[in-house]
Structure formats: C-alpha cells, structure tokens
C-alpha cells in the first residue's frame, strides 16, 4: 500500500481567541476523494489553507504528496492545485490570460503555457469566452476557470474549497462531472462542502468537522449506520403543535410542521416518542418512517438537534 496523498496530524490554528482548527487529523489515500464536511465557520477553509502552505499551522504536522507542508512548502506547491472558496481569478484579464498567468507562475515555458491554457479552455467549455475579460463571465464560468487554473500543472493532489457553493443546480452538476472525471484519472481530491449531497456523491470518505474538531468520519454508509438508519417523521396540524412536540421530544422543528426523530434504539424510540407525545396531549397528523440520509447524520453530529449531545 502506498503512502496516503494527504496526511494531517493534530493540526491546529487559532486566530486571537478563536480556535479555528483544533487538533484535526485526517488521511486521504492516493486516488480517493475526502469530503470535509461542516457548517459555515467549522474550520474547513483554515484546514485547506494550512495544507496548501498558505497558512502556517500553530501545531501539528501536514504532509501532501509525501512532503511536509512546513519543511518542503515549494515541493507541496508543485504537487497541488487549489481552487478556493471564491473564484480567485483576475477580473480584468481574459480567461486565457488568467490561465497563462498561473502557468507562467508555475514556471511553464511561454509556448507550453499557451498550449495548456488552450487545452483547459476547451476542456471547460470556455473557448468561446476565452478572450473576453473575466468581468463578463457568469458565476459558473468563473468557477470553471478557477478550477482550470488549479489544474494547469496536472497536479496529483487537488484541494477544492466549497467548489459549488453559490452555483445554480445545472452548473453544480457540470462541476461534479468534471471532478468525477479528474478522480477517474487518478487525482487525489480533498473537497470541502456544506452539502451532504455533494459529499455523498463525490467522496469516498467523509470527515465531519464542527467548531474545529472532527466529530465523525467514515464512508457515507458507515456514518448512516452509526446513527441508526431509520428516521421517524412526525407531521403536525399546526406549527404551534409542532413546536410543542419538538420541545417534548427534545428536537427541533423543520419546514414548519415537521419534527424528526432518529431511531437510535430501534422500535423503543418510536414507542417512547409516541408515549411522550400522548402524555403531552399532542397528536401527530401523520407519522412516517424513512431511511436516514446524510442530512440527518449531519444535523445530529453538528449538534443542531439536542439529541447529538
């Protein structure tokens, strides 16, 4: 077995009093995709910045493509592509000029840079817009260009920080397809996202972080199994009744009149819930059982419902 492409070992970063990343360790085997999942402010970007040598960790070690991020930063930089949370492209340059700029700063020769830029423009469907200033690009086009810029050197390791945040569904599907293509060709990817659907679709392994700490990790399947794979959904006649029920069941209301309970103790969970509601004199309008999704896992793990402790 070859060494993992990315290793983080107890990495930590604080900004004044805020602990952005609190001893996070993770491993990404070569050729796989790791989904780093967390809500806004969880520490995803900080983690990516440390692993891409942009930010120095306060403690811990990081290794990318076998190189220590602090001791061999230039070797790390030669091994990676980074597409940040916001498309880091120059508005006043054309798409082509942006790619050539990044290629030149990667020390590719002029002709090679031009050729690579043309290839990437073609690959990302930007050939027609290639010689227009990026200012005139749509959000989806900018993201694609940004991803293209990250791929200029065919890096073996790719960091994508919330690659589809803010994109319309069609552009998101497009970008997913591109990422899947890269993975198919053997690229190792660390991808951060707030969307479970995205992690579920793209990631081989998922690490859920919250407030700078790892709260769970495993495959999508394992995470779902860990939690119990069934969810009870109570539907109530009025938002008021739902709110009351949520309080009784120590959970939160979703979508107005929907209250969800994860079946962690099998049928006992259902019996208890019904008893509690009965004792409080609330009758659900509708009860359904369904398979748990990663959403349920995520909401539970990040403490957005009290049952996650």
């Amino acid at each position: 077995m070859s060494a993992p492409a990315i290793v983080a070992d107890g990495m930590r970063k604080t900004f004044k009093s805020v602990v952005a990343v609190d001893h996070i360790s993770l491993e990404v085997p070569k050729g796989t995709v790791l989904g780093l999942l967390g809500v806004n402010g969880a520490g995803k970007t900080t983690m990516v910045r440390m692993l891409t040598t942009v930010l120095r960790p306060d403690a811990g070690r990081g290794t990318v493509n076998g190189f220590d991020v602090q001791r061999r930063p230039q070797d790390v930089r030669r091994s990676i592509g980074l597409a940040g949370q916001f498309a880091a492209v120059d508005e006043n340059l054309t798409g082509r000029e942006n790619l050539v700029l990044v290629a030149r700063l990667n020390h590719l020769a002029k002709t090679v840079a031009a050729q690579r830029a043309a290839e990437l423009l073609e690959q990302f469907g930007l050939t027609d817009a290639a010689d227009r200033p990026v200012r005139t690009y749509s959000g989806g086009m900018r993201r694609r260009l940004d991803l293209g810029a990250a791929l200029v050197t065919h890096p073996p390791v790719l960091f994508l920080d919330e690659p589809t945040t803010g994109l319309d569904p069609a552009s998101r599907l497009d970008l997913w397809a591109v990422i899947e293509g890269l993975v198919h060709d053997g690229t190792t990817v660390l991808l951060t996202t707030q969307y479970l659907e995205e992690a579920d679709r793209l990631a081989d392994n998922i690490v859920v972080i919250d407030k700078g700490r790892v709260v769970a990790e495993g495959t999508a399947k394992q995470l779902k199994a860990r939690l119990g794979d069934t969810v009870i959904e109570f539907e109530f006649a009025s938002p008021a009744a739902a709110a009351q029920a949520a309080e009784v069941l120590s959970t939160t209301v979703e979508a107005g009149t929907l209250v969800r309970v994860v079946m962690r103790e099998g049928s006992a969970t259902l019996r208890n819930a019904l008893n509690q509601l009965d004792a409080a004199g609330i009758t659900p309008a509708h009860v359904a059982l369904r398979e748990a999704t990663l959403d349920d896992v995520f909401l539970t793990l990040t403490n957005r419902t009290p049952e996650g402790e």
């Binding site: 040598t53 930089r77 980074l82 940040g84 880091a88 492209v89 990044v102 700063l105 990667n106 810029a149």
Partner: peptide, 13 residues
C-alpha cells in the same frame, strides 16, 4: 480581497 493573493501563495512562485 478577491482571494488572488491566496491563490498566488499556493503556487511554487
């Protein structure tokens, strides 16, 4: 502000 410096810092330049 635009995140461009961040990208530049990740390059071997």
């Amino acid at each position: 502000n635009k995140g461009l410096l961040e990208r530049l810092k990740s390059l071997p330049m």
